[in-house]
Computed example of a mutant assay.
Amino acid sequence: MTATVIVLRDKKGNRRAEGAKTLIEYAYQRLRRDILGGALPPRGKLRIEHLRGRYEIGSSTLREALTLLVADALVVSEGQRGFRVAPISLEDLQDVTRMRKMMECLALRDSIERGDDQWEAGILAAHHRLSRIEERLSDGAEAMAESWENRNDLFHKALISACTSRRILHFRDILYHQSERYRRFSLMSGPGGRDIHGEHRAIMDATLARDAAVACRLVEEHMDKTLAAMAPLLAAAP
């Protein structure tokens, strides 16, 4: 069976660099971006007829894209009643953070033990790219949230890229992306006195020094600070 494709073009009609994508992937990315950015708020009802008008995409394609987002824990299926944006809560963030710390440190310890010169170079390059955008966060965190998230993801992946366990990396990736909404809300609410750039630098330095104990402690503290920043906001949420 041949997949239906859509060619994305800019306002001048030129084909975009990302080329052709399946309609389902296109719908998935649009919905995911709006959920993460808050345009589709937590607990909000995802009515197919409304989404069709919003995205100009067919019903069956939207349902398949929403099913993919259920697997990402960003959407909840309500059976015959349709779909709803997954809620956010302090209890959920606490659970995700606890599991993330376990998976992240398992992967990081393995990477520190096995990483080579190429692994070290990848960490330095990813940190440099992340640093460039973190220097400009004060100019408007909301406008840079997606770019920052992409580079933050690449930096943390570089740290653990020498890990040899596919299962650890798989579950780590699931937990990382389940915490993405919380990181974005934390970023857009302001740094709150945090030196995020300094935290990343310290994690990198300890990792490159092959000090697994310090590196893991810093990673755990890094996640706990996001949890602490979000706790008052989530506790006050209805």
Rank of each mutant, 00 (worst) to 15 (best):
L68R: 15
V75I: 02
A86C: 04
K101Y: 03
S131A: 05
L124F: 07
D95N: 14
S89N: 02
A71M: 13
V70I: 02
A86Y: 04
E104W: 12
P87W: 06
V85S: 01
K101P: 02
I88Y: 12
E91P: 02
H128G: 10
Q94W: 10
A125T: 12
A125D: 13
V70N: 00
A121L: 05
A86L: 03
L93H: 07
T67L: 08
E104F: 15
L106V: 11
D95A: 15
K101A: 13
E104I: 06
I112H: 07
D110E: 08
S111L: 03
E78L: 11
D92E: 13
E91S: 09
L74Y: 04
L68S: 14
R84Y: 11
W119E: 01
D72P: 05
V85W: 01
G122P: 06
V85A: 08
M102N: 09
A121E: 08
A107L: 07
L108W: 05
Q118C: 08
S111H: 02
C105H: 01
Q118Y: 10
D92Y: 11
K101L: 05
D110S: 08
L69V: 00
L108E: 07
D116G: 04
G122E: 12
L90C: 09
L68E: 13
A121T: 02
A125L: 11
L74P: 01
G115F: 00
E120R: 10
R84C: 12
A126N: 07
L93K: 05
M99D: 12
L106H: 08
R109I: 03
T97L: 03
A126I: 03
M99W: 12
R109K: 14
L124P: 05
S111Q: 02
E113I: 03
H127D: 11
D117S: 13
L124W: 07
R100F: 11
E120K: 07
M99T: 13
G82T: 02
R109D: 03
A126F: 03
R109C: 08
E91A: 14
L108G: 10
E113S: 10
T67K: 11
Q94Y: 12
M99Y: 13
I112N: 07
V76D: 14
D110A: 07
R109A: 13
L106A: 09
A86N: 05
R109H: 07
I88C: 13
Q80F: 11
E113F: 04
L69G: 00
R129V: 14
S89C: 04
L124M: 12
E104H: 14
S89R: 04
P87F: 05
M99L: 15
G122K: 06
G82S: 03
F83L: 09
E78R: 09
F83E: 06
L69K: 00
R84D: 07
L106I: 09
L108H: 09
D116Q: 02
I112L: 06
E120W: 01
A121D: 08
E113Q: 12
S77C: 06
S131N: 01
L130K: 04
T97E: 09
R114N: 10
P87D: 09
I88K: 14
D95Q: 15
E78Y: 03
A121I: 00
E120M: 08
T97V: 14
D110I: 00
Q118S: 14
A107H: 05
